[in-house]
Amino acid sequence: MIKYLVAIMIFISCFSISIISSAGDQNYLHSELDYEFQVPTGSNTPTIYPLETKKKVRFVDDKYMREVTYVIERESQIEQYKCSNCHLDGKNKKIKGQKPPHDHIVLKHGDAGQFTCFDCHNENKRDVLKNNFSKDVSFNQSASLCYQCHSSQFKDWSNGAHGKRIGKWVGERVIYNCTQCHNPHDPGFQKRMPLAVPKMRGVTK
């Protein structure tokens, strides 16, 4: 009896050798170093940056927080940084044959006409921002500028209920800064197509 059983099992296992076909599409979650989200155009949702390739900097105002907090360094992600390459001594360098580089920016922050550029940007030192007390704020530390108005969001962000923690859930606390997710000139999230269209049994539309 046992020999028949074993013979049947061997047959089953021979049949069950699965044939795996190949298809080319990159896998973004598996490689630690270079994954990116394919976000449809017209969206301002952020791409996901791996922790290894981005530097972290300590958040300057983490004395208001429960534990030591790091944020992702921002300056290297700004395309035209450093700003003082063009904005020198209160004058704007113009390159012939090139369109003004900031023309695409439309300020949709707050009510129409409520803000101007120099409410946040430092007119004299273009490489940094400035807060309401005309103190310099680094581009890396944008949260300490934003919380002047958005205090309730800052409270949630500093305690983990707003924003996103990256890396590990335990140990060193590294979180996204405000500008990692929100475009400061247009902070709202845009509508876009869902990435996944699930197909489930027994689901009626």
């Binding site: 979650l29 949702t45 996901i48 209920a161 996103k164 890396g167 590990k168 859930w169």
Partner: peptide
């Protein structure tokens, strides 16, 4: 100690995982 994949993928930061 790493985050679950759904937390890592979430673009709005709606997901919080912890002890």
């Amino acid at each position: 100690g790493r985050q679950p994949a759904c937390q890592e993928a979430c673009p709005t930061g709606a997901r919080v995982f912890g002890n």
